[in-house]
Simulated scan of single mutants.
Amino acid sequence: MTVVVAPPYLTDEARRDWQLLQAATEDPPAFDPAQAELLPEPARRWLLHTIAPGTPLLRGVVLETHGTIRLGGWRTFHATEVLLPMMGFVWTATAYVGLLNVQGFDRYRDGSGEMRWRLLNTVPVMSGTGKDITRSAAGRLASEFVLAPATALDPRIQWKPVDDRQVIARLPVGDEEHEVTLDVAPNGRLTAVTLCRWGNPDQSAYHSHRFGAKCEGEVAFDGFTIPESFRIGWWPGTKRWADGEFIRFSIDDALYR
């Protein structure tokens, strides 16, 4: 299976994660709709909608995306992400500030999170490591399991119904259990994902904030139907959403592994 080449600006550790997280799923079984029968109704409905019968249950994915990100103002960007739910991710991107570019990555694997961003790959813009960055990155990883839907069948995930549209997935990342709420339309389409995520979006001390994504449209790759576009940020569903939203993107390609 072809490995997606890492961008040149990754650190040695991020490059190692990039390679490890692209490992192919070993002997993936084919999806049988009966596997979803014991899930709470919204989760069952979503899974039957998002995975076609007979699809190999591949656990990881490499995503190509484009959109806008808030860096002072809204800036265009394109990105590649290697994602293996509950294990780790490396998200790399190039954003454009006028004629200049900002390049860098966010990553999490094996209990370690990091961000590193540079203007023209030289001037530091933003970087960080440590327990707060790690804990925040772990929350992001927990929320992104919906982009690799086969993860939903992992026995480590505990499901709890809320009502006829919402269901909570409790899944382990690092040393914590994260409760991720999925909002599922009557036809099985995923419309929103929310959780409490560690962070400091108001530039104060780190603590838990409401975080989430609004999902729009759909696109299919390799037997998986996932949202096509996302609006992501802090405090969804509140008056602070306009200030908390910081990224909007669409998926151009998804390679499941």
Rank of each mutant, 00 (worst) to 15 (best):
E216A: 11
W117Y: 13
E218Q: 15
Y96C: 04
I226A: 00
A6L: 10
R109M: 14
V173K: 01
T68E: 15
Y256S: 06
E144L: 05
V102E: 00
G60E: 03
Y108S: 05
T92D: 00
D163L: 08
V123R: 15
G104I: 02
I226F: 00
Y256P: 00
G73R: 15
I133P: 00
T2V: 09
L195N: 01
C215F: 08
W46L: 08
R197Y: 05
H78T: 13
H207N: 09
D243T: 11
G139M: 02
L100N: 08
R240F: 03
G188M: 06
T181S: 08
L147D: 04
A185P: 02
V62Y: 03
E177M: 13
P7T: 13
R109H: 13
L21V: 11
M87I: 04
G244F: 03
H209V: 01
L195D: 03
R118T: 02
E13R: 14
R118Q: 11
V62K: 00
G128D: 07
G212T: 03
V167Y: 02
L190T: 12
D154E: 14
H49R: 13
Q19W: 08
V173Q: 00
T122Y: 09
H49M: 04
C196F: 12
P172I: 07
S112Y: 13
G233V: 00
V82H: 06
T122N: 04
A138F: 05
E218G: 12
D106I: 03
D17R: 15
Q158P: 00
A36R: 09
T11K: 11
Q203S: 11
P33R: 01
Q35Y: 09
E245T: 13
P172Q: 07
Q158C: 09
P227Y: 09
L153Y: 04
N187R: 08
T68A: 10
P29W: 08
P172W: 02
W18K: 09
E179W: 04
L57H: 00
E26R: 10
K131N: 12
S127P: 02
W235H: 11
L83P: 07
F249I: 04
R59Q: 15
D252A: 09
